[in-house]
Nucleic acid binder design. Structure first.
Length: 105
DNA sequence: CTTATGACTATGA
DNA sequence: TTCATAGCCATAA
């Protein structure tokens, strides 16, 4: 498996508590490189999954929308997982970032 | 070496 | 409001 950037990405994502969400850029920023938001997504694509300690379902777009098209079996699946953790969604189908956006302490 | 691509983000129409 | 485009940078060919 890839190491370095990917492992760092996993490490950051792993720090996101349940019931919280983080954006790609935010994870990248936590790694010290906010310009690599795209790689965070790419790393999550290659991630071992939730079972591997990488809750990729907690990572969303900057506007709170979920990953397009594919994901864990469908965006509906991702949303369901987040709701199961206590994350609330807005009427527009996006995560209530104002309330659930994670901040690196 | 250059070109193409991508689970992003910001900006403009 | 939604849609399209540009910029970002690592990896692959």
């Amino acid at each position: 498996m890839e190491d370095g950037f990917f492992l760092r990405a996993y490490d950051v994502v792993r720090q996101v508590p349940a019931g919280r969400v983080a954006t790609y850029g935010q994870v990248a920023a936590a790694m010290g490189e906010p310009r690599k938001a795209r790689y965070v997504g790419f790393a999550l694509h290659s991630s071992p999954g939730v079972a591997g300690g990488v809750p990729c379902h907690r990572i969303v777009f900057a506007d709170g929308s979920l990953a397009p098209g594919f994901a864990f079996g469908g965006p509906g699946e991702q949303r369901r997982m987040l709701e199961a953790e206590g994350v609330g969604f807005l009427p527009n189908g996006k995560v209530d970032m104002r309330r659930y956006k994670w901040e690196a302490l």
